[in-house]
Amino acid sequence: MEKYSQFRDRGTAIAPFFPVTSPPSGLLWMPVHLFLFAVRVPALLCFSIFYFTILRWLPVGSFAKKAVLWCMIGIPGIWWIDLQIDRVKRGSLNSKAALARLPSAGTIIASSLTSPLDALYLAAIFDPIFTASYPGTRLVQRISLFRAMQLALLPPQLVPQRSSVDKLVPLSEILARYPDASVVVMPECTTTNGRGILPFSPSLLSTPPNTKIFPVNLRYTPGDITTPVPQEYLRWLWRLCSKPTHCIRVRVAECVYNNPTLTSPTPASSSTSRSTGLDAAAKNSHETNFLDTTDIGDGSDTLIGSDDVEDGLTPDERRVLDRVAEDLARLGRVKRVGLGVREKIEFMKVWGSRRR
């Protein structure tokens, strides 16, 4: 495992890109797993094809679409969803105070990214607009629900495809174009196994100053349905559909603003995780072996290397990103790490050579 040591955060010893494995259930349970897989997969495929090819294009209300999405969530055995909101007592989620602390139209959802189920759950609850972020730009690309789920199973990208560069826009433009919907941003830009929060893209900084940003963390039990290793479609489908039940733990933090006068300081309780993880990881000797800086287009929002972006942030902008990242780490009961998209790309090269 020495060749994978560079993909373990130096300060926290967390390896966010390694797949999560569950203990084998034994041969006695294999017929049960095979039966569940054989029954669930056809049903899940039928609902998915019906939704993505027919229903999403029909002029029907959101209730019908959400009903099909909930069926897609329930078919694999996701029967229990534990939702908790900061400063809202259990059992009072239906109150007006609780609803005011949930994402709504005209707000930003800054979500963790660990599985295709993240986008599916957020669509079933909030019916939002999904976006794709990239490490070196404050602009985002609007994507569909299907594309958002697909990205969780695809290799990470430092920059968008050439054909998509013209589609990059600031979040303020998407909010103005779709005032009746919330907007989902996944600022980590690639999936993890849920055991750490990666450095953020600066895309959240294109949010208008008075717009609420809600950090939302999703965790799964068992954790083997996360997809830190891309392109393992069949393995993920087997882990999802062959087990009797899965649980989702959803945590929503208080809103944050892209405004230093409205955003409170980063909680002191989580500052240790940031100093031990990010500062130590910044000194990794393998940083010089990564991809060269990439530039596309002109202006301040061009795609550049992550180190250059971080140096270009003002203290107030860094404070906003730190607050959202610390909230996600606190909600997930994990720590922030210094490994990002560049390290994930290098990890996939080593992981692929091992499998070959």
Rank of each mutant, 00 (worst) to 15 (best):
K3V: 10
K3T: 08
S5D: 14
F18V: 11
T21C: 10
V32N: 08
V32Y: 02
H33T: 12
F35P: 00
L44D: 06
F47H: 03
T53H: 10
W57H: 15
L58P: 00
P76A: 01
Q84P: 05
R90D: 14
S92F: 06
K96Q: 15
K96R: 14
A97L: 14
L99I: 09
L102A: 09
S112H: 00
A123Q: 12
F126C: 03
A132F: 03
L139Y: 15
M149H: 04
L151H: 06
Q157N: 07
S164Y: 11
V169Y: 02
V169T: 15
P170A: 09
P170D: 03
S172M: 09
A181P: 00
T191C: 15
T191Q: 05
F200I: 04
S206V: 04
F214H: 10
F214A: 02
P230K: 00
R239A: 14
S242C: 11
K243F: 13
T245N: 07
A253D: 12
Y257V: 05
T263E: 10
S271M: 12
T272R: 10
L278Y: 11
A280T: 11
A282W: 13
A282T: 13
F290I: 12
I296S: 02
D298I: 13
G299Q: 05
D301C: 04
T302P: 03
S306T: 13
E310A: 10
E317W: 10
L328R: 08
R333T: 12
R336I: 04
V337T: 12
E343R: 02
